[in-house]
Nucleic acid binder design. Structure first.
Length: 283
DNA sequence: GTCCAGGAGAGGC
DNA sequence: GCCTCTCATGGA
């Protein structure tokens, strides 16, 4: 059993259910309610008891802490937010223990390609379908789970098999992206060497990846906290809570994007996660 | 049955 | 460059 000190301001359940990752399942182990899932290839069971996070895994406490964002200096991040923003204050008070997860880049990219115009519940279903069909089984806490399929496995599966997994038109983008990576025509490791603008352009080359999904990958997979994805929920809360009745109907998406990045500052994406979770759970 | 979902791409202008 | 239409699927 791995024990990780987390302090007071960390909420495992909210963090795993905030629309960042889509495969963690509730799982009771030795009488403790927790979650079973994968960190890359490693199966993990995690739970929270008071100020500690417990884990059972072949992975290390450092890797688990890094994945969950436990070691992040959140006070320093919060200090860069606008300090006179009652909406953000309300959102942060709603979920003070929410953290950004640092997830594997390919898994993040692939999952968000399948997320287009889908509800969270169905993104979870698609993730499970793909894992079961094309991933590898693992055993943890008495439960069988599956790794996320590699680019090679997705490329090998073919577009038709992906459609059968419930992806619909998203199968094209996922398959083409997997082929580009499996063939070596593209390499996600290249992202680390690029500034944020170039990294976004690199992601936009993949079929099925537009500005919103590119920003999700930068934020959730690359640790680029300035990236600010705007989906229908973010669009809704920004327009309704930050603009008057006339302006909110007329402001264009590009203007809203630029305004948000400027207003929320260098760690805008971290602020975005509080707002997204707050909007989705309370609207 | 109807509406909606962590959007993106193609085509028309 | 911007505007509109279309693309499958399942949950609410």
């Amino acid at each position: 059993m791995i024990e990780i000190a987390t302090g007071g301001a960390f909420d495992l359940a909210q963090t795993l259910d905030s629309g960042q990752v889509f495969h963690w399942e509730p799982c009771v182990f030795e009488g403790v309610a927790g979650f079973a899932g994968c960190l890359g290839d490693e199966p993990v069971w995690v739970a929270q008891t008071g100020d500690e996070t417990l884990a059972v895994s072949g992975s290390s406490s450092e890797k688990i802490a890094a994945y969950l964002g436990i070691a992040e200096p959140v006070a320093a991040l919060h200090a860069t937010f606008p300090q006179d923003d009652p909406v953000l204050t309300e959102a942060m008070a709603y979920c003070p223990g929410l953290r950004l997860i640092r997830q594997p880049v390919w898994e993040c990219l692939a999952t968000f390609i399948t997320s287009s115009l889908k509800q969270v519940a169905h993104i979870r279903q698609i993730s499970l379908n793909l894992r079961r069909r094309f991933g590898e089984p693992r055993l943890i806490a008495g439960r069988e789970i599956w790794t996320y399929p590699t680019p090679d496995a997705i490329a090998e599966a073919g577009e038709a098999a992906l459609r059968e997994s419930g992806l619909g038109y998203r199968a094209v983008g996922l398959h083409r992206t997997a082929e580009a990576l499996a063939s070596g025509n593209a390499d996600l490791d290249a992202l680390d060497q690029l500034d944020v603008e170039a990294a976004r352009d690199y992601l936009l080359q993949f079929h099925g990846v537009g500005e919103k999904i590119a920003n999700c990958v930068l934020l959730f997979g690359c640790g680029r906290y300035g990236a600010f994805p705007i989906d229908v929920w973010m669009d809704r809360i920004l327009r309704e809570r930050y603009f008057g009745p006339r302006k909110r109907k007329r402001i264009k998406p590009a203007e809203l994007q630029a305004w948000a990045e400027r207003h929320f500052g260098p760690n805008a994406g971290y602020a975005q996660q509080y707002l997204f979770h707050f909007a989705r759970k309370t609207f």
